[in-house]
């Protein structure tokens, strides 16, 4: 039993470890160069989207968000060497949990605060009415 467990343990990768199939210097360099080039293209696209007029104006934040998420994915895969392989499961699960908490914190704060703002506005209006009377 313990032998099985150790075998499983040995098959893990530390986050950021070079992947076994990428062994060799040229393969390693190629991975980082791909990551750099794609990141540069996505960054350039983000800055261009802002200046150009080919996007419908309210669509710009959505486009920026999509480009940012894509670039974070590129960084995770090509710089931090996260992938969906079985030896990376623990790292991916930890990341998924982190993303869940981040999403709850950010969207929850925005949701609650926008409701509060909405309610406060009504309060102000009510108070104005009081003062007019």
């Amino acid at each position: 039993m313990s032998a099985e467990k150790e075998t499983e343990w040995q098959g893990q990768l530390a986050p950021g470890d070079e992947l076994p199939e990428d062994s060799g210097l040229s393969a390693g360099v190629r991975g980082y160069v791909i990551g750099l080039v794609v990141s540069l293209l996505l960054t350039a696209a983000s800055f261009l989207v802002l200046h150009d007029t080919f996007l419908w104006k309210p669509g710009i934040p959505v486009a920026l968000g999509v480009l940012a998420v894509a670039q974070m994915g590129i960084h995770l895969v090509f710089f931090l060497h996260l992938n969906t392989g079985p030896d990376n499961t623990n790292n991916i699960l930890a990341l998924a949990f982190g993303v869940l908490i981040v999403a709850i914190v950010v969207s929850g704060s925005l949701w609650i605060m926008s409701h509060l703002n909405h309610n406060m506005m009504l309060m102000e209006r009510v108070m104005d009415l009081h003062q007019q009377r």
């Binding site: 032998a3 150790e6 075998t7 343990w9 040995q10 098959g11 893990q12 990768l13 070079e18 076994p20 062994s23 030896d87």
Partner: peptide, 14 residues
Amino acid sequence: VAATSHGARSVDAR
């Protein structure tokens, strides 16, 4: 924990 030579995979080689 005694990590002996069970399951010597590519990871160990590196």
